[in-house]
Amino acid sequence: MIKQVLKYGGMFIFLVLIQVLILNNIHLGHLITPFFYFLFILLLPFETPRYLQLLLAFFLGLTIDMFTDTAGTHAFACVLAAYARPSILGLLASRDTYESGSLPRVSTLGQSWFFRYALLMVLIHHFALFYLEVFSFSGFFGTFLRALVSSFFTIILILLSQYVIYRD
């Protein structure tokens, strides 16, 4: 239990720092930033209680908001994605459904499963994020494109990270 808390706590801090200190300074083209911190929500164990998933997502989003002066935008998008997570997991369930104690990783469920999982989750998060940010700002199509391109870069980073860092 303590080990889990330390592991996921460390990951939380690590991802937030990577996001605010490095990725937020990368401007791929104009207005496009990958939101790699979202990986935290993807990697939570299957058996995490749903209320805990929501709360963790909320605090993750709020922390990012604090660093980037975006009020509750990230918090909203993260909670939404965390709420949708069980449905998406259900949608992607293969014949050999999730064994108890296994984790949502490439190593346990395969590359293509992880890709589809990451894709759906990132799209939900990014579209919520970008459209919420836009709220008082016009240009439906421009936002659509930005959300799509950002999602693309986020997913690339998330997939890469699976082969570099989290090989457990």
């Binding site: 909320f58 908001d65 604090m66 009020a71 509750g72 918090a75 909203f76 909670v79 939404l80 008082s136």
Partner: peptide, 28 residues
């Protein structure tokens, strides 16, 4: 319920933030 509460709270933060310097702890 938790989901709705958290989302409503986030939205209210966004709207309050627009009124210039309200949410003291929530900025960089």
């Amino acid at each position: 319920f938790l989901f709705l509460i958290l989302e409503v709270f986030s939205i209210s933060l966004i709207f309050r933030y627009n009124n210039y310097q309200r949410v003291e702890f929530l900025n960089s």
